[in-house]
């Protein structure tokens, strides 16, 4: 297969070069054919939903002259999608949305890629994590739940999460470290499934993203205990009774010193020009101003930090170091690394 690959690469590069030479010398670059939007995760997940919403918003408001086409490449915990982008050198008609697997997949599986192999475009938002328990359980606050975990033998409490050696399990390990007690982590395929397992009483708690569990909260099936962010969430719309996202305390204030947010960012293949990056930064700035995007942010209680350029790169460097530290402590680094 190596030969074919080399051939494929060759043609791709040739394609890229051809495209570059055809382009007018004007400073403002515009896509000239459909842009592929790689989702390194399966259909229906959080990243996929965000990508398809972006596709819809861009099509509806005609923010781009050509179409945006969402393509899922979920193999190897997203490694397949990232490798595709990494290998599409200088192709400006390809972007990828990332989740935490940008950092965790290469560390946990040894698949050879790094965010530095791609061109960072912008951070769209940060996804929050909330500690949830079943509403029928007696724990009203994070403190009560922590006390119960501490009082029971190791492994009594079951934490459900999405995937293995990814964000949910990293948070679980951090909680274990903070409390000095082991929990039993059970991985599931998707966030929605995790929330339902909690409602069904098959696990004791989850660290679902807000959007994955909000409907169960509205139905009074699950209860949020604390949010793993430095500050409380800003959204004050009532969700259950008088409660809103803003009424959830931070985990730190509840005695659980764990902070974690997940990147929802956009990258391009390596070797693209500054104008091309600038075009997409500008595009996503326009997207952020649409009412549909605002609604998505509110529904999912996202942290709306936007970054691009050197600021974004700094953030990525720090986040990578944090992940490496967390994964090293948890023993999640693949033997090959």
């Amino acid at each position: 297969m190596k030969n074919f690959h080399a051939l494929g690469l060759g043609t791709l590069t040739a394609l890229g070069l051809a495209a570059m030479s055809i382009l007018p010398a004007a400073a403002e670059w515009k896509p000239t054919k459909p842009v592929e939007f790689i989702v390194p995760a399966g259909t229906g997940g959080g990243a996929d939903q965000m990508a398809r919403t972006l596709q819809g918003i861009i099509a509806k408001h005609e923010l781009m002259p050509t179409q945006l086409i969402v393509i899922n490449k979920s193999g190897g915990a997203g490694g397949e999608g990232f490798l595709d982008v990494k290998n599409s050198k200088a192709n400006p008609h390809k972007i990828v949305i990332t989740l935490s697997n940008l950092f965790t997949t290469p560390l946990a599986t040894g698949i050879p890629f790094n965010w530095k192999d791609m061109t960072p475009v912008a951070m769209l938002a940060l996804d929050e994590f909330v500690l949830w328990v079943n509403a029928q359980d007696p724990y009203k606050t994070a403190q009560e739940y922590e006390a119960a975990i501490k009082a029971a033998p190791d492994g009594t409490f079951k934490m459900g999460g999405t995937g293995s050696k990814q964000e949910d399990q990293i948070i679980t390990v951090a909680i274990e470290k903070a409390l000095g007690k082991k929990m039993t982590y059970i991985p599931y395929k998707g966030g929605g499934e995790v929330a339902v397992q909690l409602v069904g009483g098959h696990v004791n708690s989850t660290v679902n993203n807000p959007i994955e569990a909000v409907s169960q909260w509205r139905g009074d099936k699950v209860r949020p205990l604390c949010v793993f962010d430095g500050k409380q969430l800003p959204y004050t719309d009532k969700i259950l009774g008088d409660l809103s996202w803003s009424s959830i305390p931070t985990c730190k204030s509840a005695g659980l010193d764990v902070e974690y947010v997940m990147l929802r960012g956009i990258f391009m293949p390596p070797g693209v020009s500054e104008e091309q990056v600038a075009y997409f930064v500008d595009l996503f700035k326009k997207v952020r101003e649409t009412p549909e995007w605002q609604q998505l942010m509110k529904d999912g209680a996202f942290n709306q930090t936007f970054m691009a350029g050197p600021e974004f790169k700094d953030w990525l460097t720090k986040a990578e170091a944090t992940h490496k530290g967390l994964m090293q402590e948890a023993g999640f680094i693949a033997a090959a690394n």
């Binding site: 996929d48 398809r52 409907s215 169960q216 509205r218 139905g219 549909e292 998505l296």
Partner: peptide, 14 residues
């Protein structure tokens, strides 16, 4: 399901 969310409908018990 993703579509429901985009239209502002929260699937679930409610």
């Amino acid at each position: 399901l993703g579509g429901l969310l985009i239209w502002g409908l929260q699937p679930g018990p409610m």
